[in-house]
Design a protein around this nucleic acid. Sequence first.
DNA 1: TGTTTTTTAGTACATTTGTACTATATTAAC
DNA 2: GTTAATATAGTACAAATGTACTAAAAAACA
Lengths: 207, 207
Amino acid sequence: MNATKQKILIKSLNLFNDSGISNVSLRAIADKAGISVGNLQYHFKKREDIIEALYFQLVEKIDSILFIKTDDLLQSFLNISVEIVTILYEYHFFLLDFITITRRNQKIKRHYSELSKRREIEFIKVVDVLIKNGVFREELLKNEYHSLFKRIEVISNFWFSSILIQADVLSRESIEQYSLLISQSIYPYLTDEAKNQYDTIFPSQLV
Amino acid sequence: MNATKQKILIKSLNLFNDSGISNVSLRAIADKAGISVGNLQYHFKKREDIIEALYFQLVEKIDSILFIKTDDLLQSFLNISVEIVTILYEYHFFLLDFITITRRNQKIKRHYSELSKRREIEFIKVVDVLIKNGVFREELLKNEYHSLFKRIEVISNFWFSSILIQADVLSRESIEQYSLLISQSIYPYLTDEAKNQYDTIFPSQLV
DNA sequence: TGTTTTTTAGTACATTTGTACTATATTAAC
DNA sequence: GTTAATATAGTACAAATGTACTAAAAAACA
């Protein structure tokens, strides 16, 4: 990709993350990138194009890490959720303005919608494997794992928002807090054997 | 309260819920309320005052339903979470624009922050009672119920957002979906006895 | 009734913002 | 080396928005 274009995306991302989409004007982006607004517009005809480009960057990054190692199922499962959020953290402006963005941009909205459905199917598949391998227990309620997926999805998407409505800044610590939240939400679904394994992975969580 | 003031708040709420705060101008509110912008401004000196007024209405409404009936602990516990979300639904613009609002309005931000802390303390107290009464099990991990609270908090605050990033409209159904999500997330923490009780409350969830 | 206060309407303004348009400058192609 | 393309800068503009200000109408009050 063109160097200027790259620079625009990086600076936009920084500004968006710091101040939120609606508080970042094209002039501010151009300033930060050290170019003119005219030039900015040459590379991205519409403001929305910048956001779209960043969105698809994000999606690509996440896609690239989505696979479970078959040797250490539980660990791998827990790792992925943290890796995803670590990437989301890089693009957190997107999550903070999720509603605004999807309201304005049907393309992103539809794409995310499809993505989410595919992710759920994948999730359920992985859970099936985990059940067969004695890591997760069987469902005790109907659609229990569907429900679990939904909760994890909401928390992944809005954890940073949840922090920022109370705190003034978002720090990397929030990723660890997220990690704790998610792993603890998984715990009740583990078999006794896997619970032991969990305790060795997170000895500090023992009562 | 003044009739005009009342009308402004109602119409603002409707518009905010339908289109999101940033897409509702003072002119639009005045139009909808059948008054002039000048008059609107007489009652609410600043745009932010409308939002603040609505916020404190919301907080008051929720406060008014927050008490657990001691005779039917589990049912009462589950009911409250739905009642809260039902009220939140009435004011869902607030949740959809949570970040934007708290970013702009320190007063609301600080107030919510305090509120959230108080709510967590209340939650833990209630959980203690539920444990003592054999409804919830003891903690198996450190801060397990703190973690549960956080998850419920995020989901309560952002469930509607989560729906709206995929769907085009928000319907009352989303409240039932929320209810299912939350009750299923509670299930693993119930004692065997309480699980039986759960099954009689939600027979349709049996596998 | 006359006066003061409250309520309502209308206008005007400063600011911001996205973007369209034009004119150079730089680079690539032949 | 001339031409064509790409890239950059600068200006201009229309639209929207919050809000300040003024004046009239209505209500309350004495």
